[in-house]
Deep mutational scan, measured.
Amino acid sequence: MAAGGDHGSPDSYRSPLASRYASPEMCFVFSDRYKFRTWRQLWLWLAEAEQTLGLPITDEQIQEMKSNLENIDFKMAAEEEKRLRHDVMAHVHTFGHCCPKAAGIIHLGATSCYVGDNTDLIILRNALDLLLPKLARVISRLADFAKERASLPTLGFTHFQPAQLTTVGKRCCLWIQDLCMDLQNLKRVRDDLRFRGVKGTTGTQASFLQLFEGDDHKVEQLDKMVTEKAGFKRAFIITGQTYTRKVDIEVLSVLASLGASVHKICTDIRLLANLKEMEEPFEKQQIGSSAMPYKRNPMRSERCCSLARHLMTLVMDPLQTASVQWFERTLDDSANRRICLAEAFLTADTILNTLQNISEGLVVYPKVIERRIRQELPFMATENIIMAMVKAGGSRQDCHEKIRVLSQQAASVVKQEGGDNDLIERIQVDAYFSPIHSQLDHLLDPSSFTGRASQQVQRFLEEEVYPLLKPYESVMKVKAELCL
């Protein structure tokens, strides 16, 4: 049975990233139509530049190519590739079939990587351009969430054990800070992308030097003109047959890092959902379990974690691919890159769409948070109580021993009897502590235990987050809708 299948058929496997999760716009960027249309555009740009620099290419040939950029006979191309065992030459023939007058000058002087690699770089750039505003929107939604809850005390956790208090907004800023680093890295790697350009079979530009009869300047002009037509500021000066596969490492490393950030955020949300302090959106008709109707599973956060793990592992592909590119190139890269580049971007696209949807509907339960604080705060307040007693004339050592005994009794009630923490009640009825009984409410005010959390939130948002989001103001209103 021949390899390949009808990918629109229910009898043929289709990647869930495309069929179930990723956005239509990201799927289109990695589609065959987008790819092969870009090949034709690159052939047109090459012909236009070659004509401008004096090669015998007519206006009629150029116009014929322009008129057929979208006229792609995919069936013919597939048949040609089956016959020739070469995808680029299959599309040269297919393009030439609908451009008979231009057929002889299509791909003039070029090698397969002229269309293959340059198209990949265009796709990487455009895919990054799709991700950047999506990530900015996630940051914006979380920034709104953090600002609104900047002063809401909550129990902090280290080692997932109760620690000092923080605020809900401050905790959210930990998430935002990681995503801001990801946004900066995505922008950097996007701006650092260079075009492969017009380089020939081993990167020496020998074929173009021959076409222009040894004119170095025209060869350099050709490279520059096509690079500018493709919208790049610069091209690699040095290439082998391909652009260095280190570029793929750079791009997928940034995406993998984004995956790590999203995994951490969504894990926190899942843990908070278990504590009943916070939940992701839950639709009115949504079913959490087929057997347990009360369940409210954090399905979206779980999906993000599941896909983020996949995204983090994909960076190993370009690392290994770059390491086995012998001399000017081997074909070890080809099949692998067809999979890992598309999957990385479709996965990143999915987790950003999902995280935006989550961040637009996060639900906080202040009463649950308050109750958990009441359970733990008495123990945390013991040092403040000791200091207040010393100020009232008591002995630190005597007070410490009193607190120690009462704390152990209260802990026994919590752990052995399943009761509430009654340390404060014990202190309130103990005559030894009568000098500070009137101060206990103040000493137990949760806001006095959150330090500068709310001020940190305000400063972080104003100095770091809002300036970073400013270039994306025009796209901030787009909502994230999930079908599944």
Results as ranks from 00 to 15, higher is better:
residue 2 A to L: 12
residue 4 G to W: 14
residue 4 G to K: 15
residue 8 G to R: 15
residue 8 G to V: 15
residue 11 D to N: 10
residue 11 D to K: 12
residue 12 S to R: 15
residue 13 Y to T: 13
residue 13 Y to I: 10
residue 14 R to F: 15
residue 16 P to M: 15
residue 17 L to T: 12
residue 19 S to I: 03
residue 20 R to V: 00
residue 22 A to H: 07
residue 23 S to W: 07
residue 25 E to M: 09
residue 28 F to W: 06
residue 29 V to S: 06
residue 31 S to R: 06
residue 31 S to P: 00
residue 31 S to I: 00
residue 35 K to V: 13
residue 35 K to G: 05
residue 36 F to E: 15
residue 36 F to M: 14
residue 36 F to A: 14
residue 48 E to P: 00
residue 49 A to W: 03
residue 51 Q to S: 10
residue 55 L to I: 12
residue 58 T to A: 10
residue 58 T to M: 10
residue 59 D to H: 08
residue 59 D to K: 10
residue 61 Q to R: 06
residue 62 I to M: 09
residue 64 E to D: 12
residue 64 E to N: 08
residue 66 K to G: 08
residue 67 S to Y: 13
residue 67 S to F: 08
residue 68 N to I: 06
residue 69 L to P: 08
residue 71 N to Q: 06
residue 72 I to L: 12
residue 72 I to V: 09
residue 76 M to I: 12
residue 76 M to Q: 14
residue 77 A to N: 13
residue 86 H to N: 00
residue 93 H to Y: 14
residue 95 F to K: 00
residue 99 C to D: 00
residue 107 H to T: 02
residue 108 L to A: 14
residue 108 L to F: 11
residue 110 A to T: 13
residue 112 S to D: 00
residue 112 S to E: 01
residue 114 Y to E: 06
residue 115 V to Q: 06
residue 115 V to A: 09
residue 118 N to W: 01
residue 118 N to Q: 02
residue 118 N to A: 07
residue 119 T to W: 03
residue 122 I to Y: 11
residue 124 L to S: 09
residue 125 R to N: 10
residue 126 N to E: 14
residue 132 L to Q: 14
residue 133 P to T: 13
residue 135 L to V: 12
residue 140 S to E: 14
residue 142 L to V: 08
residue 144 D to N: 14
residue 145 F to N: 08
residue 147 K to H: 09
residue 147 K to S: 11
residue 147 K to I: 11
residue 151 S to M: 09
residue 154 T to Q: 08
residue 155 L to I: 05
residue 156 G to M: 01
residue 159 H to T: 02
residue 159 H to V: 01
residue 165 L to R: 03
residue 165 L to M: 05
residue 165 L to G: 00
residue 167 T to P: 00
residue 169 G to Y: 02
residue 170 K to Y: 02
residue 176 I to Q: 05
residue 177 Q to F: 13
residue 177 Q to N: 15
residue 184 Q to T: 14
residue 188 R to W: 05
residue 189 V to H: 06
residue 190 R to H: 12
residue 192 D to S: 11
residue 193 L to K: 02
residue 195 F to A: 06
residue 197 G to S: 11
residue 197 G to H: 03
residue 198 V to F: 02
residue 198 V to G: 11
residue 200 G to M: 01
residue 201 T to L: 00
residue 202 T to Y: 00
residue 203 G to R: 00
residue 205 Q to L: 05
residue 209 L to V: 12
residue 209 L to G: 10
residue 212 F to D: 03
residue 213 E to L: 15
residue 213 E to Y: 13
residue 213 E to G: 14
residue 217 H to I: 11
residue 221 Q to H: 10
residue 221 Q to Y: 12
residue 223 D to N: 10
residue 224 K to M: 09
residue 224 K to W: 09
residue 225 M to K: 14
residue 225 M to P: 02
residue 226 V to W: 02
residue 227 T to N: 09
residue 229 K to L: 07
residue 233 K to V: 10
residue 234 R to W: 08
residue 237 I to A: 07
residue 240 G to T: 11
residue 247 V to G: 12
residue 251 V to L: 15
residue 251 V to Q: 07
residue 253 S to H: 10
residue 254 V to K: 12
residue 254 V to H: 14
residue 256 A to M: 11
residue 258 L to Q: 08
residue 260 A to Y: 02
residue 264 K to R: 13
residue 267 T to R: 01
residue 267 T to I: 12
residue 271 L to W: 01
residue 272 L to T: 06
residue 272 L to H: 05
residue 274 N to I: 04
residue 276 K to C: 04
residue 277 E to N: 02
residue 283 E to F: 07
residue 286 Q to C: 00
residue 286 Q to W: 01
residue 288 G to W: 02
residue 288 G to R: 00
residue 290 S to N: 01
residue 290 S to T: 09
residue 295 K to P: 01
residue 299 M to A: 15
residue 302 E to G: 01
residue 304 C to I: 13
residue 305 C to I: 03
residue 305 C to Q: 04
residue 309 R to T: 07
residue 309 R to A: 05
residue 312 M to D: 02
residue 313 T to L: 10
residue 315 V to Y: 09
residue 320 Q to F: 10
residue 320 Q to G: 14
residue 321 T to W: 03
residue 323 S to R: 03
residue 324 V to H: 08
residue 332 D to K: 01
residue 335 A to G: 13
residue 336 N to I: 12
residue 336 N to P: 01
residue 336 N to S: 12
residue 338 R to I: 02
residue 338 R to E: 03
residue 340 C to W: 04
residue 341 L to D: 14
residue 343 E to P: 10
residue 344 A to N: 00
residue 348 A to H: 03
residue 348 A to K: 01
residue 349 D to I: 05
residue 352 L to W: 03
residue 352 L to G: 07
residue 353 N to A: 10
residue 354 T to E: 03
residue 358 I to L: 14
residue 358 I to Q: 07
residue 362 L to Q: 07
residue 363 V to N: 06
residue 366 P to L: 03
residue 367 K to C: 07
residue 368 V to L: 03
residue 369 I to W: 02
residue 370 E to W: 07
residue 371 R to I: 00
residue 372 R to M: 05
residue 374 R to N: 05
residue 375 Q to R: 04
residue 377 L to D: 03
residue 378 P to L: 05
residue 379 F to R: 04
residue 380 M to R: 02
residue 380 M to Y: 01
residue 380 M to D: 00
residue 381 A to K: 06
residue 384 N to G: 05
residue 385 I to E: 02
residue 387 M to R: 03
residue 391 K to E: 10
residue 393 G to Q: 08
residue 395 S to V: 03
residue 396 R to K: 07
residue 396 R to C: 04
residue 400 H to E: 02
residue 402 K to M: 11
residue 402 K to C: 02
residue 405 V to W: 14
residue 407 S to P: 01
residue 408 Q to D: 10
residue 409 Q to W: 06
residue 410 A to D: 04
residue 410 A to V: 05
residue 414 V to D: 02
residue 417 E to A: 08
residue 419 G to S: 09
residue 420 D to Y: 04
residue 422 D to E: 09
residue 422 D to S: 14
residue 423 L to T: 03
residue 424 I to P: 10
residue 425 E to L: 09
residue 425 E to G: 10
residue 426 R to L: 08
residue 429 V to Y: 06
residue 429 V to M: 11
residue 430 D to R: 06
residue 430 D to H: 15
residue 432 Y to M: 14
residue 434 S to C: 09
residue 435 P to A: 10
residue 438 S to Q: 08
residue 446 P to H: 12
residue 447 S to C: 15
residue 448 S to W: 09
residue 452 R to P: 03
residue 453 A to P: 05
residue 455 Q to M: 13
residue 456 Q to L: 13
residue 457 V to H: 02
residue 459 R to L: 10
residue 466 Y to A: 11
residue 469 L to V: 14
residue 470 K to C: 14
residue 471 P to F: 15
residue 474 S to W: 15
residue 477 K to I: 15
residue 477 K to W: 08
residue 479 K to V: 14
residue 482 L to N: 08
